[in-house]
Structures are given as structure tokens and as C-alpha cells.
């Protein structure tokens, strides 16, 4: 089955992202496809390359990156909503440059895009599964 996933909560504060990751991992291991994971609301914080959990804890951001979810052309399909990301200080290099801000914190396994990507995922997948409160 072709799944799309929406993650609505941030890492470490809420279990939604961990549960979504476990779901995605299990789905892939059982031969299903995760065509896209869309991060919205505080969920955009799951993409921060500045994340540094203590060594005895799971690394939520690296967990997502380890799934290696990409399209046929090798572009990341871990997609972060641009409007939700910018208002929470989550920037890739292009947005940082465009807004004259030093530094950027989007992990390279993710990409920033618009809400249309969420709707498209709902249309193209067999199931869209939402994780969050």
C-alpha cells in the first residue's frame, strides 16, 4: 500500500513524531511504500539539524533521516511546510539567504515546500495517516 504521513507535533515534547516514525519504519519493513511524510504545525521542528539529544536518548531527527524517503529522482520526501517552518525559525540555506539571516538548520534529508504537497499526498496515496493530538 502507498502511504502518506502527516506529523503535527514537535519532537521530544510529544510522542506523535516517534509513533509516526515507528509506523513508517514498520510499513517499509513490511513492503509498503511511504510516498511522503509532511511535517506541519510544530512538527516542522522534527527537521532541525541543530537537534542534540543526550547520548542515551533516541535521536528523532536522525531516525527520520535514516528512513531515506526519496522520490524517483532522489529528492527528499520528508517535506516541511514552508509557512509553518519560517514562522518557527526553521530555515534551509535558500530561505536564510533570501531573508538575510545567518545560518540555517534544515537537515539535508528534508526539504521545504508548500501545503500543496500535503493535498497532493492525500490525492496520490492510498492512505494519509495523521499523527498528533
Amino acid at each position: 500500500m502507498k502511504f502518506a504521513i502527516q506529523v503535527n507535533e514537535g519532537p521530544y515534547q510529544h510522542q506523535a513524531s516517534d509513533t509516526a516514525f515507528q509506523f513508517a519504519k514498520a510499513a517499509i519493513e513490511n513492503g509498503h511504500e511511504i510516498m511522503r511524510v509532511f511535517f506541519y504545525h510544530d512538527g516542522v521542528n522534527n527537521a532541525s539539524s541543530f537537534t542534540l539529544p543526550p547520548q542515551d536518548d533516541r535521536h528523532v531527527v536522525n531516525n527520520w533521516a535514516s528512513l531515506d524517503i526519496k522520490d524517483a529522482d532522489g529528492n527528499p520526501e520528508l517535506v516541511v511546510c514552508v509557512a509553518a517552518a519560517l514562522r518557527r525559525g526553521m530555515l534551509d540555506e535558500s530561505e536564510a539567504t533570501k531573508n538575510s539571516i545567518e545560518g540555517n538548520n534544515l537537515h539535508p534529508a528534508f526539504r521545504i515546500s508548500g501545503l500543496g504537497q500535503l493535498i497532493e499526498a492525500g490525492i496520490q496515496s492510498d492512505r494519509l495517516v495523521v499523527f498528533g493530538d
Binding site: Y40, A83, L115, G116, I119, E120, I123
Partner: peptide, 11 residues
């Protein structure tokens, strides 16, 4: 915001 974007997809 999602609903307004979704409107463009004619669903």
C-alpha cells in the same frame, strides 16, 4: 491555511 490551499486542487 490548508483549506484555502486545498481549494486550488479542485477536490
Amino acid at each position: 491555511e490548508v483549506v484555502l490551499i486545498a481549494a486550488a486542487f479542485e477536490q
